[in-house]
Design a protein around this nucleic acid. Structure first.
Lengths: 294, 294
DNA sequence: ACCTGAACACCGTTCAAGT
DNA sequence: ACCTGAACACCGTTCAAGT
C-alpha cells in the first residue's frame, strides 16, 4: 500500500482520471510524496516498529493510534486489523523491548555466585526500560504472556531454581523483583520527563525538597526535619542497588539447600512463617493472586 | 452558588425574570432540582469529595474534569479556578485518601516489636488503597508533598528511627515499602477491574494460566512447565505478606544498634556494602534520586 | 472580578461504503 | 475480502464574552 493519504494541502488539484505521466518530470512545486522509499506493507511487526520509534522519539503520551497510522501512511482504522485495541498494541510493544534484555545464565560451577547473576540481570532490565523513555509505564506486574517475557522468565527461573530456591519462593521472588525494577524505571522516567535526566540536572530540585523538609515545623515533624538530608541523599543508582540487594539477599536466605549451615537453616525457619500465614492479620481480604512478572 | 446549570431538559421554559413564587406549590410536572439540599458552594474540597465519590463508584477511567463538573452542576472550566490541571486534582485526591491510613505508633517499651508495627501499617495502607478502586494508579513513587502524606511519612520514620535504623536506610527503606505497597495495590485493582475480586473469582483465570504454562514446550521451557503450579499458587494476601516480610525483615538486619549480637553486626557489615557502591556495576547511569514516598 | 459556554485540538473505536 | 473515510462519543484545556 504505497504512498497514499498525502495531506491535501500538499497536493495540487488533479481532475479525477488525470495523473502525472511517469515520463514527464515532476513540476517543482509539487511536494514530494511522503515516502519515496518503497513502503513496507502493513503488518503487526511494521506497526510495532513504527510505534516504538514514535515512543522513543516523543514519549508514551505522544503515542496514539492515529499518529502511528499516519506515520505508516494510512488511517487509524487500519491498525485494528492487527490489534484488537490500543492496549494490545502496547502489550506487544512492551514484549518487543523485553527482547533486548540479555538472558541471565546460571554460573557454570554449582557454587558460583548466582546472586551476582540475578542482580546483574536486574540492572540489565532496568537499562533496557530506561532506554525506551517511559514505555515501561505500560508494564502491569502481570503474568508474562509475550514470547520474550516467557523466554526471560524461563531463564531467570532457571538461575533461581539452580541455586536451590524453593519453587514458590522463586516464583514470588521473581514477581517482586520485576515489580521493583518496573517501579524504579517508571520513577526514573518521570524524573527524566521533567528534565532531570542526570544527577546534576536533579540537584536543584533535590535542594528544593531538602529545604522544604528542613523548613517544616520541627515540633510536628521532628524526623522529617532531621532527615531532610537523608531523604534526598543517594543517586538513583544507589537507591536501585539498595532495593535490589535487599531483595536478592533476602531471597538468598531461602537457598539453604546449597549451604546447609546453621545460618541458612535459621533463615529458612524464619522465612517459612510467611509460607503458612502472614504474621500480621490482613486488613482486607479482597486481593487475588497472580503469576510471575517481568 | 446554589442550584444552577440544571440540565435544560429537566426544566420547563420560564421567561427571564419570572421565577416560581416560593409560596406556591411546585407544579407536579416540574422535575425536582438535582440537589434539593442546599448545594455547597464550589471549593477545592467540594471538588475533591465529588471526584472521590465518582472514582469510588465508577473507577479512575470514569473520572473526567467534565464529569466532576457536571456532578457539581457547573462546567469543566470552573474547576480550573481551584486546580491548575487534572494532575493536580489527582494528586490532592490521593493525599485525601492517605488521610484514611492510621498513623503507625512506635511500641512503647524500647524493645517492642517494631517490625510488627511497620508490617501492620503496610497492611493498613494497602487496605485503604484497595478500598478506593484503582485510584492508587495515580500514585507515583514520589516525594510526599500532601499534608497527609507528610504526616504519615513522619510517623513511619519515627518508628524506623526509634528502632535504631540508620537515617539513610530508613529513608530508602520507606521508599521501597511504599513502592511495593502501591505496586501490589495497583495489581490487585487491575484484577478486581477484570472481575476477579475474590480468590474464588480468580480461580478459573489462574487455572487457565496454569494450563498454559504446563502446556509450553518442555524442551525450551522446562522450568516454567515444572513451575506451572508454583507460579499460580498463593493468594494475593500471601504474596503481599511474602513481599512485606522480605522487605521489613531485610530492613531489620540494619537495626543492629538495639541488638548488638554477632548476627546483627554481620548483617550491618553485609548491608554496608550497598552504602558505598553497588556490588554489580550499573549498566546505565541516567537515573536520579528522589525522596521518600507513599 | 469572577465565571463559563463554546471552541480548539485532540482521543479510541466503529462501521457503512467503497475498491 | 479487504480497507478506510467519516462519524461517534468522548477527552483536557483555553479564552472571549458574558454577568
Amino acid at each position: 500500500m504505497p504512498a497514499r493519504a498525502v495531506p491535501e494541502s500538499n497536493q495540487i488539484n488533479v481532475p479525477p482520471g488525470h495523473e502525472w505521466d511517469a515520463g514527464l518530470p515532476q513540476p517543482p512545486w509539487r511536494t514530494r510524496r511522503k515516502a519515496p522509499v518503497a513502503r513496507q506493507p502493513l503488518s503487526a511487526e511494521a506497526v510495532i516498529e513504527t510505534a516504538l520509534r514514535l515512543v522513543d522519539r516523543d514519549g508514551l503520551d505522544a503515542l496514539s493510534m492515529r499518529r502511528v497510522a499516519q506515520e505508516l501512511g494510512t488511517g487509524a482504522a487500519s491498525l485494528y486489523a492487527y490489534f484488537a485495541n490500543k492496549d494490545e498494541l502496547l502489550e506487544q510493544l512492551l514484549d518487543r523491548i523485553v527482547a533486548e534484555i540479555p538472558l541471565p545464565v546460571a554460573p557454570t560451577d554449582g557454587a558460583g555466585d548466582w546472586t551476582a547473576v540475578v542482580k546483574r540481570s536486574c540492572w540489565d532490565s532496568r537499562a533496557v526500560f530506561l532506554a525506551h523513555r517511559d514505555l515501561v509505564k505500560v508494564a502491569r506486574a502481570n503474568i508474562p504472556v509475550g514470547p520474550n517475557a516467557l523466554r526471560y522468565t524461563e531463564a531467570l527461573l532457571s538461575v533461581l531454581r539452580g541455586a536451590g530456591i524453593p519453587d514458590r519462593i522463586a516464583a514470588w521472588g521473581m514477581d517482586q523483583l520485576s515489580l521493583v525494577i518496573v517501579a524504579d524505571a517508571i520513577e526514573a522516567s518521570i524524573h527524566a520527563g521533567q528534565g532531570r535526566q542526570t544527577e546534576a540536572d536533579a540537584e536543584p530540585y533535590l535542594a528544593q525538597v531538602r529545604d522544604y523538609f528542613g523548613a517544616l515545623p520541627a515540633d510536628r515533624f521532628p524526623n522529617l526535619v532531621a532527615m531532610a538530608g537523608a531523604m534526598t541523599e543517594g543517586s538513583g543508582d544507589e537507591r536501585f542497588a539498595f532495593a535490589i540487594d535487599l531483595m536478592v539477599d533476602g531471597l538468598a536466605r531461602y537457598a539453604g539447600a546449597t549451604d546447609a549451615t546453621t545460618e541458612g537453616a535459621a533463615a529458612v525457619t524464619h522465612g517459612s512463617a510467611v509460607l503458612e500465614s502472614p504474621e500480621v492479620v490482613p486488613a482486607g481480604a479482597g486481593a487475588v493472586a497472580d503469576g510471575g512478572g517481568v
